Simulated scan of single mutants.
Amino acid sequence: MTAPHQEPPHAETHDGSLGSRLNRLRAAVLGANDGIVSTAGLVVGVAGATDDRSALLTAGLAGLLAGSMSMAAGEYVSVSAQRDSEKAALAVEKRELREQPAAELEELTRLLEERGLSREVAGEAAAQLTQRDALRAHARVELGIDPDDLTDPWHAAWASFLAFMAGALLPLLAIVLPPAPWRLPVTVVSVLVALGCTGWSSARLGAAAPGRAVLRNVGGGALAMGVTYAVGALLGAAGV
């Protein structure tokens, strides 16, 4: 009698991809958080001076576009610099492997020893890793770089652009869609709830306690809206 076919047990992956995805997700949450806070402060400040819907929409759209493009440009520049550094480090490592193979093998052995392997096991592992792909082994163990997963500045720029825009849309819609008497309370409540969610999410993704992060996020957003509303109200009262 033939034994029933059994599915192989789930293979749990232990490469760096999970940590990389979590970092990207956390960056997206923080980008959305920036969009919420900055746009909310802007539209609430304008709401303190006027209840004209077109003025609120214009200010909100200007803040959304300017903030999104600023975030994208800043992320592109910083990630491009990081990528250039990674490529330069890999080029140096490639040259050293070509010119000093014995010294590089000894260095890899020592690095593996520092990670807890015995000298004998570290030497054998270093030899096998070098034989399989010396550059990849040194890049991962010595430099902490995955040659197959270098940072992409365009991906980072678009991710920041979209994350900021997604966050900025919330206060923008909340301030222009409701009737005039409800605009400010709807905006404040929706923004504080959203900031509580992003604070909780970023804390959980960073393996931190969420309570303090939520309080910081909500408190900072409330302070920003309070200050900008007060300034807008004073300027509106002064007829500026």
Results as ranks from 00 to 15, higher is better:
Asp15Gly: 15
Leu18Val: 14
Gly19Pro: 09
Gly19Val: 11
Ser20Lys: 14
Arg24Asp: 14
Leu25Ser: 14
Arg26Trp: 09
Ala27Lys: 10
Ala27Ser: 15
Ala28Arg: 10
Val29Arg: 10
Gly31Asn: 10
Ala32Gln: 06
Ala32Tyr: 03
Ala32Trp: 06
Ala40Leu: 08
Leu42Gly: 01
Val46Gln: 07
Ala47Val: 12
Asp52Gly: 05
Arg53Glu: 09
Arg53Ser: 05
Ala55Met: 13
Ala55Cys: 05
Leu56Thr: 10
Gly67Asn: 01
Ser68Met: 03
Ser70Val: 05
Met71Val: 07
Ala72Met: 12
Gly74Ile: 06
Gly74Arg: 05
Glu75His: 07
Tyr76Cys: 06
Ser78Ala: 15
Val79Tyr: 06
Ala81Met: 09
Ala89Thr: 11
Leu90Thr: 00
Ala91Cys: 02
Arg95Asp: 14
Glu96Val: 01
Glu96Asp: 13
Leu97His: 06
Arg98Cys: 10
Glu99Thr: 15
Ala102Gly: 14
Glu104Ala: 05
Glu104Trp: 02
Glu106Cys: 04
Leu108Asp: 03
Thr109Tyr: 05
Arg110Phe: 07
Arg110Lys: 07
Arg110Ala: 12
Leu111Thr: 03
Glu113Phe: 01
Arg115Pro: 00
Ser118Asp: 14
Glu120Met: 09
Glu120Gly: 13
Asp133Ile: 08
Leu135Met: 00
Ala139Arg: 01
Val141Ala: 11
Glu142Asn: 09
Glu142Ile: 08
Asp146Lys: 04
Asp146Arg: 07
Asp146Tyr: 08
Asp148Thr: 08
Asp148His: 10
Asp149Ser: 11
Leu150Trp: 05
Leu150Arg: 02
Leu150Tyr: 04
Asp152His: 04
Pro153Tyr: 02
Pro153Ile: 07
